[in-house]
Design a protein around this nucleic acid. Structure first.
Lengths: 231, 231
DNA sequence: TGGAATTTGTGCGTATGTATG
DNA sequence: CCATACATACGCACAAATTCC
């Protein structure tokens, strides 16, 4: 066990024991070097081990901070935002809502006839007061005429669909890739431009198999872990 | 439909019809502007629409190129690399293989006693000759003594486990988040530093429920789409 | 608004212990 | 026993970002 590893283990224990809470600033590298009686480089190596595990996060000029635990977001047949983030103070805000003709891509995903009308909802999701995801949902307008009014009353998709007579909806497929945040996304999500986002494209159907939602969600990589169980 | 959108749709059709193959260079923006009889700015707006969808990729000073279609990589109970990428010339190369004491994190993931030995395999995966992922797999050494020899003979994890008497293994859980590539990863994956990677952490168990592999895989965001079916 | 102080990030040189051949 | 390579650790200096007055 090198000196670096033992220092890393010691700091890890302190964090696990609650010595520092998520978001707290650790002592400076210089202070830690003095406490452990080693060179600052050695402390930096130890902190790098913890950063590799995502346990701490250094900001140049500011300090090193205990990372907030990423929110676990289950991806399954039934994805319900508020249930998924129970205990993390989930919050959803509407950014825009419009009804327009579907793009080629949208009509293909929802198996609509070209030029059909769709409702498009843009929103932002928060957990513990921090933005965790941007989302765009696309619904066929045909059969869901009341959806915009319902969404304006309550931004919950599940509740709005229920108000339109869709009592249940299930996710058929999720496709996931990774993208970097552009300036617009970065501003809304309160991350730097170039931060990694996990993009999830999903198709949701009602009880009869009719596709009722095509959604794309951009999750902040360092704040959310998507969890897939394989039963 | 704006002129921009009609040009974008026209180019999209050409690409879909095979007019240009993945990797091909499109005509210059000036040439396209002349062909469609519009200003170069309009062509740029149309190309931006396609780039937004990941269909083309512009490189300053070089030109605009048709993006290679991302490989679909199913995430399910049975994840087998070669089957997953059938038709995309899957290839797996071993980067390193060592046996050492498990870190705290590794022994927790594999439910090992602290200090137990593990085999650690680093590898790189390619499809169609391009790197698509880096992976690190961690196996308990206890009960899998022959694994390193088997892996050196054949880098396939499934084959190596079979050689050690594990006839079948299934994925229990996948956790996904997004990270940016560091210099080492970028070099190996042939992407730029800062490119978005989808990181998948998975736990695999044998028929008796014993955890036999803890793996982490970093997929190049723009070359792979992870697909999760929700049956 | 500005500028000093603080803090992390980076580079270079040096030294030591441990394998390897 | 020597030469080499590698990882670890130390010391010093400066750059870059942030904070604070």
């Amino acid at each position: 066990m090198t000196r670096r590893d033992s220092i890393a283990a010691s700091l890890r224990d302190d964090i696990a024991a609650g010595g520092w809470a998520p978001g707290d600033q650790l002592p400076t590298e210089g202070a830690l070097a003095a406490r452990f009686g080693v060179n600052r480089h050695t402390v930096r190596a130890a902190l790098a081990v913890l950063a590799e595990d995502g346990l701490v996060h250094a900001r140049r000029g500011a300090g090193t901070f205990v990372a907030a635990k990423p929110a676990a977001y289950p991806l399954g047949r039934r994805v319900r935002f508020h249930q998924n983030l129970a205990g993390r103070a989930p919050e959803k805000r509407m950014l825009s809502l419009e009804t327009r003709a579907a793009t080629e891509r949208e009509s293909a995903a929802l198996t609509l006839t070209p030029g059909a009308q769709v409702h498009v909802l843009d929103g932002i999701s928060l957990a513990d007061g921090r933005p965790i995801a941007l989302s765009q949902s696309c619904f066929p307008a045909d059969g869901l005429e009341q959806l915009p009014d319902a969404l304006r009353a309550d931004p919950s998709v599940t509740a709005a669909l229920k108000a339109c007579g869709v009592s249940d909806h299930v996710r058929v497929e999720s496709r996931i890739d990774a993208r970097v945040a552009d300036a617009l996304q970065a501003g809304l999500l309160e991350v730097k431009v170039g931060a990694a986002l996990a993009r999830v494209t999903s198709i949701n159907a009602d009880g009869d198999g009719r596709r009722v939602e095509w959604g794309r969600t951009w999750f902040v990589g360092e704040r959310v872990t998507l969890v897939v169980d394989h039963p």
